[in-house]
Amino acid sequence: MGTALNLVLILLLLATALLAVNARDLLAAVIIFSVYSLIMALMWQRLQAPDLALTEAAVGAGVTTVLFVITIFKTRRREEE
């Protein structure tokens, strides 16, 4: 049971990492990256590091995502010009 859960988490982590890098839309990339952070928080909890899991969930999935989204909304893509 534990091994299967670990395997699923690692596969999801790899999948979200690849998707975040390959996403064409920056907003989609940021959202996928926040999902990556959430899975990472679960991984920290599985590795018995609850302090780190709390930090990852609050900073990685919460604050950083919002800061990235703000940056995307306040900047423009060069191809548009």
Binding site: P50, D51, A53, L54, T55, A58, G62, V63
Partner: peptide, 17 residues
């Protein structure tokens, strides 16, 4: 318990966001 200053501060920051 797990947690501490930095985590709590980040949660306050998240709530204000």
């Amino acid at each position: 318990s797990p947690g501490g200053g930095f985590q709590g501060g980040a949660i306050i920051g998240g709530s204000m966001i």
